[in-house]
Structure formats: C-alpha cells, structure tokens
C-alpha cells in the first residue's frame, strides 16, 4: 500500500499528474478533485476508476482521513486558501502553483531537505529545468551570476502562466539563487507559436570566474543532466555544454568565461502531446517529491 494522495485541480497539469501517479508504487491516487464535473480531467478520472468530486477543497475537508498528501494544481491565488485548509487538517501539500507558501524543491538538488515541511513548492517549469544546471556549476565553482531562458510553445502555456508571466520570472530567478547557488539569478521566458509546436527549450548561462576548472564544469553538468533524466526521461542536452570566452560584464562582476547549457525537454505524452515538456517536468518532479515524502513518512512511522 502506498501513501493515499489526491490531486486538486483538473486542468492540464492535474490531469497529466493523474496519469503519472497511476504508475507510482509509493503513491496511491484516491481522487482527482475539480470544480466542473463535465471537465475533461474529471471525466477521464471517473473512467479510470478514481473518485472525481467537483466540490474542490471541500471534498478534502469532508474526507479528512482519505488522503495524507494533496498535490495542488490550481492557481497561486487559490492555493493560498487551500494551503491554510490543508495545514489545519495536517495534510502535506505539494504546491504546483507559483504561490510559494512553502520551501521550494528541485529534486536532484534539495529533495531530502524538506521532507517534513507541511507545504513544499515546485517552483516553475523553467525552474525545474534549469536550477539543477546552475547547481551543477555552483558545486564546482563560484557562480557570481546565472541566467536561464525558457522557450515554450504557445500552445503549452496556459492561462495561469499568461495572466501572470512576471510570477514566472520572479520565482524562477529566486530559485536560481536560493537553490541553484548563483549569487545573482535572472530568468527569461519566451513563447513561440510555431506549428508544429516546438519542444520546450532551456538555455542556462553561468558566469565562470577566473581560475574555474572548465572540465569539472562540463562533467558536473553532464552528470546532473543524467540525474534529472532519471525522473524526466525526455530531459536532454541539445549540445555538449560549451564554454565561451568573454570578457562578460555581468551584474555579478566581469568574468573571463561563461558556460552555455542548451537543453530540451520532450514530454512523456501522458495527457498533453510531447511538445509540452514544460508541463511534464513539473508533474514528473512533483511525483518524485511525493514519492520521497511517502518513503520518508513510512520510515518515520
């Protein structure tokens, strides 16, 4: 028996997460909770034999013992309210919105640090894709400045992202600093409407100070890519990491070199097509976090 969990929010993210949880040994999905019984997500949940209530967070309050952990795939605004309810019920929240009520978790970097937190935040899709690369560099050298550029297909950017695109850049740049280990972080997001839709692309630039061991940087990046690919199979380098010569006048000071890491993320195609690697990396990372919490609770119990 795995840890009983529910998903709240039956949109793209919640529905994709449902399919991934269906394959987890450590997590038992009980319910996909929405607000519209006719939604595609709830219809699919019913067909798969999961509970599919349409009364939102109230279902959790009415069934406080049904689940131990809730994945919230609603919106930042709604999660603020949910976080309070879940905390009162003693149910762990894995927050896939940018609300950031709890500590940010990027699995290959700080997965084990917040296993007892009542609420953890999954940052952003771009944050999940690029923070590990910054961490890979910062574990072998000082990173005075790091920058990421995420390009996602227009089709895969939902209304939540579109209405609050600043939230993406703020939350992601903070993650590059707090978890990636960069002294200063910057995040950029671009939407590309090309047809057929492009795969999610991410580029990470890190400033490399004088005296950096470039081979160690390359090796560390390649090894971290493999760590991410363990739970996001479509995560890969587009090119070998390249070291470019400057000088570069970064906000963290002038540096002689930069490393450029060019990545793409192909989705698993669970609910949305494979181009939506940006959604896939979020849901895959959330499952990874949920499983680690489940294992931890089992050990502590």
């Amino acid at each position: 028996m795995g840890l009983p969990v529910a998903i709240i929010g039956s949109g793209n993210i919640g529905t994709d997460l449902m399919y991934k949880l269906g394959r987890s040994d450590q997590l038992d999905l009980v319910a996909l909770i929405g607000i519209d019984p006719e939604s595609d997500g709830l219809t699919r949940a019913r067909a798969l034999g999961y509970e599919a209530p349409a009364n939102g967070i109230d279902w959790v309050s009415e069934n406080p013992n049904a689940v131990k952990l809730v994945f919230d795939a609603t919106s930042a605004y709604v999660h603020v309210r949910h976080a309070k309810v879940l905390a009162e019920l003693g149910i762990t929240a894995v927050d896939l919105t940018p609300a950031a009520r709890g500590p940010k978790v990027i699995p290959p970097v700080n997965l084990m640090e917040h296993l007892d937190a009542p609420n953890v935040n999954m940052v952003t899709c771009g944050g999940q894709a690029t923070t590990p690369m910054v961490a890979a560099v910062s574990r072998v050298t000082r990173v005075p400045y790091a920058e990421m550029v995420s390009t996602v297909s227009s089709k895969s950017a939902g209304p939540g992202t579109r209405q609050n695109i600043d939230e993406f850049t703020r939350t992601t740049s903070k993650a590059l600093e707090e978890i990636g280990g960069a002294e200063i972080g910057k995040a950029i997001i671009i939407l590309n409407p090309a047809e057929p839709p492009i795969l999610m692309r991410n580029t990470v630039f890190c400033a490399l100070p004088e005296g950096t061991d470039h081979d160690a940087v390359r090796e560390s990046v390649i090894s971290m890519v493999a760590d991410v690919a363990k739970y996001v199979p479509g995560y890969r380098l587009k090119q070998e990491p390249v070291i470019e010569e400057g000088p570069f006048n970064t906000p963290g000071g002038v540096v002689p070199h930069r490393v450029v890491v060019l990545l793409e993320v192909e989705g698993a195609g669970d609910y949305l097509p494979t181009y939506a690697g940006n959604l896939d990396i979020m849901t895959a990372a959330a499952v990874r976090v949920g499983e680690a919490i489940a294992t931890h609770q089992e050990v502590s119990a």
Binding site: T151, I190, N192, K238
Partner: peptide, 21 residues
C-alpha cells in the same frame, strides 16, 4: 527556417554549434 521569434537569441548559439558540428 526554425521560425525563431524575438528574444530567442540563445538559439543562435545552438544553431552555430550544430552547424559547426
């Protein structure tokens, strides 16, 4: 040909590295 849009300057490096290879 790849229908890059404004802001995708990072793709220039990607394309250049790929062409060189």
């Amino acid at each position: 040909a790849r229908k890059a849009v404004g802001g995708q300057e990072d793709m220039i490096i990607d394309v250049a590295v790929e062409l060189a290879r």
